[in-house]
Design a protein around this nucleic acid. Structure first.
Length: 898
DNA sequence: ATCTATGGCAAGCCGA
DNA sequence: TCGGCTTGCCAT
């Protein structure tokens, strides 16, 4: 059966390929029509991945995109049930009847009475479900939708003593609503049998889930059931993704300016489509006066010239119709948007354009578009999935950091490039884009797939939206599954919005973590113990959630969170606690250890590593979202309680360590640094933590020695193998000039070679030499390259938005603007420090002490400023080593006199 | 339209 | 001149 089906699929796709190859022009629409018909609502479909969802306005139905990993095609399935968009309201059908604009609303369908459990009020409530024919009738339009009409109109007809009309669940995207109500899980497989969608199961998965279950035998009831459900999702295999990466280049008369994609005023001059499986395509537009050039393309790419831009674009579109996954870097805002508008301008009919242009996104009509810029821009992804390995979210920087592939350097504008130079440049971009999805066994796409499963979101959304949306959506899913009313943000806040602690930082909502003052000096044999996943553990163990904190039960008011007046419910388990807690357990007790288990095959290891990093990303954000106003279940006391319990736990651990006779050198939030502890002491402390705090405290790392100054969040830790952890020191910050950073790194590697206190003396001598050498080179103005002295600071905002002060990098941006170089929020500004001088900047006289790199000369440099930087950078470490900067350089002054 | 949190350090601006 | 405030970058 299986084989037969495969053959059929392949023969169909082969035929199609041939057809397309026969004549590349005009046939497109015919072929496409045929294909779309075949793709649309097949009566039968073997197990295929639910990758995306949308609302089909023409049919008034939710539409699911299914990716068949065998034929490697996308198929569409439309909802066959009577599911419709709706909202909930406290008005009865009778009351709603009085509101003219409701029943006469063109999108209105009918009323239903429903019972839901309200987690805020802790009781069942009777509500009316107002069902509509299309989602826009519920909300989404600027005016005149039901979610606004109901409260507005009711206020007009009701008496003051009547309760006001409220609506719930009225701002949920329709396809999400459909996913929740139908219990569909994006990222997993479904087959179609006789037109109906059926969940698919994989036998092998079941076995592993069983194994996981036995690991968690200690857990009981609900918790265990959830662990099992998550495990089932996560163990489910991932398909091979058939994909193409696209990059285009557009002509621009002004070299520094990228044409506006909404206008699409100039021709597309080059496009590259890279898949590495099919033949890569380089498409070039013939233009007058352009040289061929000599640069060579990889032999597996095919080069094609077009006389007409329209033909070139149609060739791109052919691929966009064909591939189930299309990868771009900034395609939402540029490539796809430009192509769509340009195509329209050239008279290509709308229905032959494969792109759906949205306000902020560009989606594909027959596939999934992943814009890697959006994905890598996500701070949680940047920090927790890729440990800050890339700094700027540019193709060049991300490419260099993750796959070691940089963009081609261009030293002239596009207009001056030969065909081969242009092709090589564009091809490299598409190559980087593709490889960013394929490295480490398709890590990025699999990560997106796993996140789609957890969050219950389509792959497109999960790759574009932030972690707070992911968390919100799986909580929404759970609410619907249990017939819980999803509360309004305002209601949570008015009932449970007040925090009771004062933050140390001005302007913050509540008090955060503790940092233990470090013991300055050099300490040998330092063990760092930390709580595994502290905040998620607290949320789990203390049953935190908007429902359970400050609950309405009198007899729970004595169940107090230490350090706060808040109390916690004992009667119900909070959904947040349950879901975040079970994800935590799975990561800590299964996926994290398994991802390091050498007995597993490479495939399984890499898959487990993907899962554990997906969990890490979610868990690390899971506390913060409760303190984020943008989060739909915003509940500051939950965040506050989490932080308070963490302070409590850390304080107790520090005290307990002390009682066990261990010296605590330092601690931050969830960690304690222990000086030369014995095995027994470590075990005792860990045992005490499990018993008294119900949290596991493990040895995270051991330093051969650590160097502390008196500053918090500032230290060096040297591992046994000579690697050096540098935390918080100025020498590692990215805005510091390379000239200083280099010296700092020399010191760092020298410290890595020290293995005993006896060896310190010679290391100190070398370090003195390093510092002195830098100092002398500065004084003698002996730097190799002015760039080495550049500071690099990111503009947090647009230059004109700095009102209160004018920081140096902003001054630099303004100086550049006078020379027509525009700097925007997020740009990195590079400058050197100079002796103060008067200058006119933006028509104002200013005293400036900085100079943009573009304008600076060696003679401008204020050497003493750099000496001061050298001093402050090194003092953070010299302090602890018993060295003095002044002495190091003072010595030479004497010597010079002698 | 977009958005997890707070704590800590260094530098520089700017008004008292 | 001092000290509060703003800014950016980092730790967790």
């Amino acid at each position: 059966m299986e084989e037969q089906r495969q053959l059929d699929e392949y023969s169909i796709s082969d035929q199609m390929l041939e057809k397309q190859q026969e004549s590349s022009e005009l046939v497109l629409s015919k072929v496409e029509t045929e294909r779309i018909q075949r793709q649309d609502n097949p009566k039968q479909l073997p197990s295929s991945y639910f990758v995306s969802a949308s609302y089909d306005g023409k049919r008034g139905k939710a539409c699911i995109n299914l990716y068949d990993p065998i034929s490697k095609r996308i198929y569409f399935w439309h909802d066959t049930s009577k599911h419709k968009p709706y909202l909930l309201t406290n008005l009865s059908p009778y009351e709603l009847d009085q509101l003219d604009r409701v029943k006469s609303h063109p999108g209105f369908d009918h009323f239903e009475q429903v019972e839901k459990f309200d987690p805020l009020l802790d009781k069942m409530v009777s509500l009316t479900k107002v069902v509509a024919r299309d989602p826009l009738a519920i909300g989404g339009r600027p005016r005149g939708c039901l979610r606004e009409i109901i409260p507005e109109d009711h206020a007009k007809v009701s008496t003051p003593e009547q309760p006001e009309a409220k609506v719930w669940e009225a701002a949920i995207k329709y396809y999400q609503c459909f996913i929740y109500d139908s219990h569909l899980i994006p990222g997993t497989s479904y087959s179609i049998k006789n037109g109906e969608l059926i969940p698919a199961t994989v036998e092998n998965t079941e076995n592993i889930v069983e194994k996981i279950q036995t690991t968690f035998d200690i857990q009981e009831g609900e918790e265990k059931a959830h662990i099992e459900q998550w495990a089932q999702l996560l163990e489910y295999p991932a398909p091979p993704f058939r994909r193409v990466a696209l990059d285009i280049e557009v002509f621009s008369p002004i070299a520094t300016r990228v044409p506006d994609p909404r206008e699409a005023p100039y021709p597309v001059i080059c496009a590259c489509l890279t898949s590495k499986i099919d033949k890569d395509q380089v498409l070039l537009l013939k233009r007058k006066g352009v040289k061929d050039g000599r640069e060579r393309l990889p032999s597996d790419a095919s080069l094609k010239f077009f006389e007409q831009e329209k033909d070139l674009i149609e060739a791109i579109f052919k691929a966009l119709w064909d591939y189930p996954f299309v990868i771009t870097f900034n395609g939402d805002d540029f490539d796809l948007r430009y192509l769509a508008h340009r195509a329209e301008k050239l008279g290509i009919p709308r229905k032959e354009i494969p792109i759906e242009v949205g306000r902020r996104v560009c989606l594909l009509k027959s596939g999934v578009h992943i814009d890697l810029y959006k994905f890598f821009y996500n701070r949680s992804i940047q920090i927790y999935a890729f440990s800050n390995r890339y700094r700027d979210v540019t193709l060049d920087d991300v490419g260099k950091a993750l796959i070691g592939l940089a963009k081609y350097d261009l030293n002239k504008p596009f207009a001056d490039l030969s065909y081969s130079e242009l092709a090589r440049y564009c091809y490299r971009d598409s190559e980087i884009t593709l490889k960013l999805t394929s490295f480490d066994d398709d890590l990025v796409l699999k990560l997106i797939l796993v996140l789609a499963r957890i969050s219950k979101m389509p792959m497109e959304d999960v790759s574009r939206q932030g972690v707070s949306r992911w968390i919100r959506n799986f909580l929404h899913f759970e609410h619907r599954r249990r017939n819980f009313l999803i509360p309004n943000k305002a209601d949570i806040f008015s009932l449970k919005g007040k925090t009771a602690t004062t933050a140390i930082i001005k302007g913050k909502k509540y008090k955060g973590a503790i940092v233990v003052k470090p013991v300055p000096g050099v300490h040998f044999n330092v063990a760092v113990m930390d709580f595994a996943s502290l905040y998620p553990s607290i949320i789990k163990i203390w049953n935190l959630g908007y429902q359970t904190i400050l609950c309405p039960h009198e007899d729970d008011k004595d169940n107090i969170v230490p350090g706060t007046p808040h109390w916690i419910c004992r009667k119900y388990k909070a959904l947040e606690s349950l879901l975040i807690g079970s994800l935590r357990d799975l990561r800590v007790n299964w996926y994290k250890p398994k991802s390091k288990d050498k007995t597993l095959s490479a495939d399984v290891l890499s898959w487990y590593n993907i899962i554990q990093s997906a969990l890490k990303v979610i868990l690390n954000a899971s506390y913060g979202v409760f303190g984020a106003e943008s989060f739909d279940l915003y509940c500051p006391p939950v965040a506050e309680a989490t932080a308070a319990i963490a302070r409590h736990a850390l304080t107790l651990i520090v005290k307990q360590a002390h009682d066990l006779g261990i010296e605590v050198l330092y601690g931050d939030t969830d960690s304690v640094f222990l000086k030369n502890p014995s095995r027994e002491q470590i075990d005792e402390l860990a045992a005490w933590s499990s018993k008294e705090l119900k949290m596991s405290l493990d040895v995270d790392k051991v330093y051969r020695y650590a160097v502390f100054s008196s500053r918090k969040k500032n230290y060096l830790g040297i591992f046994d193998d000579g690697r050096v952890d540098v935390k918080g020191l100025t020498g590692k910050k990215r805005h510091i000039p390379r000239f200083i950073k280099d010296a700092f790194n020399q010191m760092k590697s020298r410290l890595g070679k020290v293995s005993s206190s006896e060896e310190f003396e010679s290391a100190k001598r070398d370090i003195k030499k390093i510092v002195l050498d830098r100092y002398m080179r500065l004084k003698r103005r002996e730097w190799e390259n002015l760039d080495d002295l550049a500071f690099h600071v990111v503009l947090g905002e647009a230059p004109e938005r700095y009102i209160k002060t004018t920081p140096q990098h902003v001054m630099v941006a303004r100086m550049l603007k006078d020379r027509d170089i525009e700097m925007r929020a997020g740009d990195l500004v590079s400058f050197v420090k100079i002796k103060p001088r008067d200058m006119v900047v933006r028509n104002r006289r200013e005293v400036i002490s900085v100079m943009p790199m573009q304008l600076a000369a060696d003679s401008d440099v204020d050497v003493d400023k750099y000496v001061a930087y050298l001093q402050s950078t090194f003092e953070q470490v010299l302090d602890a080593l018993g060295l003095e900067f002044d002495e190091i350089i003072g010595l030479t002054k004497l010597e010079r006199f002698m």
